[in-house]
């Protein structure tokens, strides 16, 4: 799966976990916290994205991205390596 497809997948997971964001435009420049996604929801979104990608890694390895684009880059790198 390419990087942009992973970004789309993550954005889909965000809308799934936080239905309030269904109609809001979301891009790779957005950070989940700025969208009003709380820390518990953020971890659920990351877990769901990993599950959808078939990744089984420690969550702490997904810590660090400052926005959704960086998260997609990181997931893409892990996915390619897996």
């Amino acid at each position: 799966m390419d990087r942009d497809s992973i970004l789309a997948l993550v954005i889909g997971q965000i809308r799934d976990v936080v239905p309030d964001l269904a109609d809001r435009p979301i891009t790779g420049d957005d950070a989940m916290a700025d969208l009003g996604v709380d820390s518990i929801e953020r971890s659920e979104i990351v877990m769901n994205a990993m599950e959808a990608l078939g990744l089984d890694l420690p969550m702490v390895q997904l810590h660090g991205p400052r926005n959704l684009g960086e998260l997609a880059d990181l997931l893409h790198a892990k996915h390619t390596r897996a």
Binding site: S39, R42, S43, P58, H63
Partner: peptide, 12 residues
């Protein structure tokens, strides 16, 4: 602390 990192470590 860092709320996200702490949560992730707890889950792991």
């Amino acid at each position: 602390g860092d709320a996200d990192l702490s949560l992730m470590a707890y889950l792991d």
